Amino acid sequence: MHQRRVALIPLAAVGLGTVIGMQAPQAQAAQPNCPAPMLGRYAVMGMGVQPSQAANATNTPTAHLLEERWLAGGQLQGSVIERVGRSERQASYSGTARMTEGCVLRLERRLPWGTERSEVMLDGKGRPLYSLNRNSGSVITSRWLPMAPGSCKAADLNGLVLSSQVGLSWSNGGWSPNAVVQREQWRDGSVQGLALSSYGGVGESATYNGKLNLDASSCWGSLNERDAKGTTYTYRALLVKGRAGARGYFYLQRDPNDLTAGWLVRD
């Protein structure tokens, strides 16, 4: 079947090598066409590989979801859930943002398991769209979506939702690719859907149903699903809050043998 746990608002112009919200006239003059990064809240979903801690292994597949706030003075605050191979970890974090050449914003996150460095490409309005992890040995890209202020409710997803998911499944001591597309109908936190999937090149179709339980005063939730064959799936979901309901949701699968992430778009 398919597989499946961050947000913003505008900022003052920033110059080369300066922290967000701090002025440096000479640096600004060196890159006059760079937009000011937009402060506020973002949802982030990323996937790739990072160096393995295990012997005789070169890298480990990984995926993450983040809810991140860009604050004045170049400060970051956020929460993350991350899959690293068959394990999972989550944390709250803080960090800093600094503008560099080429309208690239350099982020540094202080996490319990170490410092993570990323560089973000900004669009013409100063919004992040894509980023690349800059830690040595990592190859991880992420996509960003802005989130409106406030908490979420399950009814924000009501209606038709379509999705695309990619990931890996653990089998016979190794990882093989999977991909899934889905069509879902949501009503007040309950979902019924159809998934078209390919696991290691073997295709199947399955109907399923499930339930989303949101965390208190948050846009994070836990999603539990069961398909027509009786297989259960667990996910961490992050609703991407819009001005009118949810734009959809990011999800990260929590079942140890399936490392998948997806973006589900509300019609």
Rank of each mutant, 00 (worst) to 15 (best):
P25A: 03
A27T: 06
A27L: 04
Q28G: 11
A29C: 13
A29T: 14
A30M: 15
A30F: 14
Q31M: 10
P32N: 03
P32Y: 03
N33S: 08
P35Q: 03
A36W: 00
L39V: 02
L39Y: 00
Y42E: 00
Y42T: 03
V44E: 04
M45P: 13
M45Y: 12
G46H: 06
G48C: 11
G48E: 11
V49Q: 05
Q50A: 09
S52E: 01
A54E: 07
A55P: 07
N56D: 09
N56K: 02
A57M: 08
A57F: 08
T58A: 13
N59R: 05
N59H: 10
P61Q: 05
P61T: 09
A63S: 14
A63K: 04
H64G: 10
H64L: 15
H64P: 12
E67K: 04
E68I: 15
E68A: 12
R69A: 15
G74V: 01
G74I: 00
L76Y: 03
L76I: 11
L76Q: 03
Q77K: 02
V80A: 02
V80H: 00
V80T: 07
E82M: 10
E82K: 03
S87M: 10
R89M: 15
Q90I: 11
Q90K: 13
Q90P: 14
S92H: 11
Y93C: 05
Y93R: 01
S94L: 13
S94H: 11
S94N: 14
G95K: 00
T96H: 08
T100V: 12
T100N: 09
T100E: 11
T100F: 08
E101H: 11
E101C: 08
G102Y: 05
C103S: 05
V104P: 09
V104A: 10
L105Q: 03
R106V: 15
R109W: 06
R110G: 12
R110C: 10
L111E: 13
L111A: 09
L111P: 10
L111Q: 10
P112K: 02
G114E: 07
G114T: 10
G114M: 07
G114L: 06
G114K: 03
E116C: 07
E116D: 14
R117D: 12
S118C: 13
D123I: 08
G124P: 08
K125L: 14
G126L: 01
G126C: 02
R127F: 11
Y130R: 12
S131I: 03
L132M: 09
L132K: 04
L132H: 07
N133C: 14
N133P: 11
N133E: 11
R134E: 06
R134F: 04
S136A: 10
G137P: 09
S138Y: 01
V139K: 04
I140L: 06
W144R: 00
L145S: 06
L145N: 03
P146S: 06
